[in-house]
Design a protein around this nucleic acid. Structure first.
Length: 300
DNA sequence: AATGGACCTCT
DNA sequence: GAGGTCCAT
């Protein structure tokens, strides 16, 4: 199948960074400058030039998956309607640190992910690192997802349904797959959602204001403030949310000396840090956070 | 409301 | 000890 293309500047989207920086854990660089992953139950291949985004899929969109064209699916996933260059200008003028340390890392965007994949992937993220999380998510999809076919020797699977993660045997199976104590969190959260809500409940949280969506998420086992914020930002359209991890906290302490007295991230500290960056960076603060705080990048 | 320890597995 | 959460003080 031939490559198709969308006009898209590399300064608006840097595929390599955006796909593997710890938002989604399912994209692989299958050839230099070429990434393969699953989106909307299709296997995609992506690459880019300075001003074009190229894509192809293993199959045409199944009829069931609707009126969205593949171009629409990608535009939505990468949120291409958001003018990133303009945001970089705003963050640079509002924050000298952003300007000097982060503004040259162009094209880092927040993906608009599926809330189910986003939630269950991030339940895996506690005390963990990107490469191990990626392996865990892959094994979870292989075990509980459905096959989407083979592409260049690699098998691909859908992300498991909540229903499939709610079954009784899931915790034990996940433990065998190396999930450790997170196995229970995943199974219990899935079960809680199926018993109290439905498969679509997570999607519908998009309609709620940030605070309500967050507190709903935090009722789930294994979902604290940080994971809930990641889900709000990365799949529930809460663009101004800044998830506070230990790294963000360390940096914030340099700007908010009052926080230094605290030994750990208490709820109060958590909110103070989040609010600080939200006020500093504005409506798309969570996006600025993804640019500045991606490990390698920000070294104050 | 804040603190300390435990939790799986891997580095 | 780790990009976090839970549970007990």
């Amino acid at each position: 199948m031939a490559w198709r293309k969308i006009a898209c500047s590399k300064t608006e989207l840097d595929l390599g960074v955006t796909l593997i920086c710890g938002q989604s854990f399912r994209w692989k660089e299958t050839a230099p400058g070429e990434w393969t992953g699953v989106l909307k139950n299709l296997v995609w291949n992506l690459k880019q030039s300075d001003d074009l985004l190229f894509y192809k899929t293993l199959e045409e969109s199944p009829a069931a998956s609707s009126d969205l064209t593949q171009e629409d699916i990608l535009k939505d996933y990468f949120q291409l309607h958001v003018n990133l260059s303009k945001l970089y200008e705003q963050w640079s003028s509002d924050d000298p640190n952003f300007k000097s340390k982060a503004s040259s890392f162009r094209g880092v965007r927040i993906l608009r992910q599926d809330p189910v994949e986003n939630l269950f992937s991030f339940i895996c993220s506690s005390n963990n690192n990107i490469s191990r999380i990626s392996g865990m998510v892959e094994r979870m999809c292989e075990e509980f997802g459905t096959s989407l076919g083979e592409y260049e020797g690699l098998h691909h699977y859908s992300f498991p349904s909540i229903e499939s993660l709610a079954k009784g045997s899931v915790e034990q199976k996940l433990r065998k797959l190396g999930f450790g104590y997170r196995a229970k969190y995943i199974n219990q959260s899935a079960r809680f959602i199926m018993e109290n809500h439905s498969e679509h409940w997570l999607h519908n949280l998009r309609k709620l204001p940030y605070n309500e969506a967050k507190s709903e998420l935090m009722k789930l086992c294994g979902v604290g403030a940080k994971v809930a914020d990641c889900v709000c930002l990365m799949s529930l359209d809460k663009n101004d949310v800044v998830p506070v991890d230990t790294h963000v906290w360390q940096i914030a302490q340099k700007y908010l000396p009052s926080l230094r007295s605290s030994k750990t991230i208490t709820p109060q500290v958590y909110n103070a840090v989040g609010n600080h960056f939200r006020e500093l960076w504005g409506e798309y603060a969570g996006w600025a956070h993804s640019v500045s705080l991606h490990r390698i990048v920000y070294n104050f």
